[in-house]
Write a protein that binds this DNA or RNA. Structure first.
Length: 577
RNA sequence: GCACCAUUAGCUCAGCUGGAUAGAGUAGCGCACUACGAAUGCGAAGGUCGGGGGUUCGAAUCCCUCAUGGUGCACCA
């Protein structure tokens, strides 16, 4: 399909004559008016005023006059300082529909990535701790970013950097040995391990020797003592089973579960490098790196007892990943609370002389709180992610029964819609915003929600079913052989819908560049709204064969765009609901 | 104390590298199911874009400042 902005830029350049503006400038100046009555594309002439030494409205009028005759345009007019261009709709719609039908499930994808390696680290829960609503952000946003990069033609590696290391495991093992039993852990791993953990803290208040015991156990664990290793491994596996239950509900998979423990033996090497470069400094018994020149507070690399910290492992992990994957980009979907942490370690990697330091990008997001305040596992103020998903599925089931929806499999549909609602909600707003969790909000299925978009898709599917497979195949055939009669689908509602579909590949690219799935989410809503408007305004299954064929092609395109878009958010699009 | 982030309609939020009259959803109000699915569509109403300066032909958008809220800042991750 032709690139309209590029095409228009060429026409404008010729009309302006001379070299008042570069092609690049012209391309970046062409805009899409927010009001469609102003045209499909507009060109503001303010910047030309200085060069041409003429009032902007006059320039606009001149340009409008001289590009009047091009076939590309149905109409060109000047309004104040703007040249407003209206595209010839018939050619546009037929051209676009051919493109969408030809690409089908690949519509929206591109190959800008050229197979380059991109790592996305996300979800990364702590072992033996509950998987709560706070974890939804990294999990769902990260998954969508990974899917978007895949669609852009990158070779994506999905990493779950498990929090499976640290003195907390010394405490856990210590507690298990004193008060634990195997059956309870197997029956309900995370809940049980958590009670051990809290019990440890209570007991340690009374008996401080427990802390020392836990530290000793952790030291043995670090040294690879078989008994401790075995227990740790077991806790890890049991926890992972629970996490996987949630990942399965979301339909999320990972390529690697290498967590912090995996990198624990990769630290000495780069500690030596730091020393060799003279970056390490002693302060109050600890080893630090001064980052004053970067305007950052000093980073603590090793504690006064010689043990390492989180930041040390993150740097070791980055170095390992560069050598192991040779990434083009290394993306971390981690809460904004860790902004400083990332600034510090990326700066340190740069100081070490690694030119790839800035290929590591932190993608932060805001925090979720509860109406009662911040979440606290220990005080029981926590909402489990699994509960949220289950409730959403249940509510969906109720609605299906209530509305008497004809679906092939109620359970399956309820799962797709219920979980889709939660995912869609999470991906609706800019990631950086904080928000307060609200049951009303996640369980709202009207307006700008996942179910609304899925419903629109199901509705389109329903029209195609009614039309019959033959008619659909015929419409697709017509699109491909340029036999579609565009005159039937140039109404405002059809055209606005098709324009949004045309924009989708660019939207996906932007969502990737800005690491912001919500851009895509919003666009899918816009497509759904435009489709519903079209659907209400026009009757698709009409008697006239050519008209029906053209309109069916619009329905096929809308359905394809919605389905492909939802897939990049990590959502399914049921045929019936 | 210092740093970073946020502040747009009653509520929840869009608003791209500065561009035309600041847009959705939701709540409330008024409409539309004898056409392909009402988890829908249409209409009216709703705004000192946190306050104040500045840059610019032009600012919700850029700069400064103040206010409010959040997060982080040495042995947790």
């Amino acid at each position: 399909m032709i690139n309209y902005i590029e095409e228009i830029a060429d026409i404008l350049l010729e009309a302006m004559g001379g070299d008042s503006l570069s092609r690049e400038e012209v391309v970046s100046m062409i805009e899409i008016p927010q009001d469609e009555k102003m045209g499909d594309y507009a060109f503001p002439c303010f910047k030309l005023a200085k060069v041409l030494r003429k009032a902007p409205p006059l320039i606009a009028a001149d340009i409008a006059e001289s590009i009047q005759g091009f076939d590309l345009f149905e109409k060109v007019e000047s309004v104040n300082a703007y040249v407003n261009m209206f595209i010839s709709r018939e050619g546009y719609v037929a051209d676009l529909l051919k493109d969408v039908v030809a690409q089908k499930e690949d519509f929206g994808k591109s190959d800008v990535g050229g197979g380059k390696k991109v790592l996305v680290e996300y979800s990364s829960p702590n072992i033996a701790k509950p998987f709560h609503i706070g974890h939804i952000r990294s999990t769902v946003i990260g998954n969508s970013i990974a899917l978007i990069y895949q669609a852009l033609g990158f070779d994506v590696e999905k990493l779950n950097h498990l929090g499976d290391y640290g003195t907390q495991f010394g405490k856990m093992i210590c507690a298990y040995r004193r008060w634990g039993n195997k059956e309870d852990v197997i029956a309900s791993p995370i809940k049980t391990l958590l009670t051990y953990y809290t019990k440890f803290h209570v007991e340690a208040e009374k008996d401080p020797t427990l802390d020392q015991e836990a530290r000793d156990i952790f030291t043995r664990l670090e040294q690879g003592e078989p008994e401790e290793m075995e227990l740790w491994q077991w806790f890890r596996e049991e926890s992972l089973k629970e996490f996987n239950r949630v990942y399965d509900m979301f339909g999320i998979t990972f390529d690697s579960y290498n967590g912090e423990s995996f990198y624990s033996d990769k630290m000495p090497r780069f500690l030596d490098e730091l020393k060799a470069k003279g970056l390490l400094k002693e302060s109050e018994g600890a080893q630090i790196v001064e980052l004053e020149e970067a305007g950052l507070p000093p980073a603590l690399i090793t504690k006064s007892d010689g043990s390492t910290l989180y930041i040390t492992r993150d740097i070791a992990a980055a170095v390992y990943r560069k050598e192991h994957y040779d990434f083009y980009k290394n993306i971390y979907v981690v809460a904004s609370q860790q902004n400083l942490h990332f600034q510090q370690w990326i700066e340190i990697v740069e100081l070490l002389g690694y030119e790839w330091a800035r290929d590591c990008v932190h993608v932060p997001f805001g925090l979720i709180s509860m109406e009662e305040g911040t979440m606290s596992t220990r005080e029981g103020r926590v909402i489990f992610l699994e509960d949220v998903l289950n409730k959403a599925v249940e509510k969906t089931k109720e609605i299906i029964v209530e509305k008497g929806v004809n679906t092939d499999n109620v359970e399956e549909t309820a799962r797709q819609v219920g979980i889709g609602a939660v995912v869609f909600q999470e991906l609706s707003n800019n990631r950086i915003k904080d928000y307060v969790f609200s049951w009303d909000r996640v369980l709202n299925f009207e307006g700008e929600t996942g179910p609304y978009v899925q419903y629109t898709h199901a509705r389109a599917a329903s029209v195609l079913r009614k039309a019959g497979a033959e008619a659909v195949a015929a419409a697709e055939g017509k699109c491909l052989e340029d036999g579609l009669d565009g005159t039937y689908i140039v109404s405002d509602s059809a055209y606005e819908l098709l324009k949004l579909i045309y924009a989708m590949p660019a939207v996906i690219e932007e969502a990737g560049e800005r690491y912001e799935p919500s851009i895509l989410t919003r666009h899918i809503i816009n497509i759904a709204q435009a489709f519903n408007r079209f659907y209400h305004n026009e009757h698709v299954l009409v008697k006239d064969e050519d008209e029906k064929t053209a309109k069916l092609a619009v329905v096929i395109a809308a359905k394809t765009a919605i389905k492909n878009g939802l897939a990049l958010l990590g959502m399914e699009a049921p045929e019936k609901m």
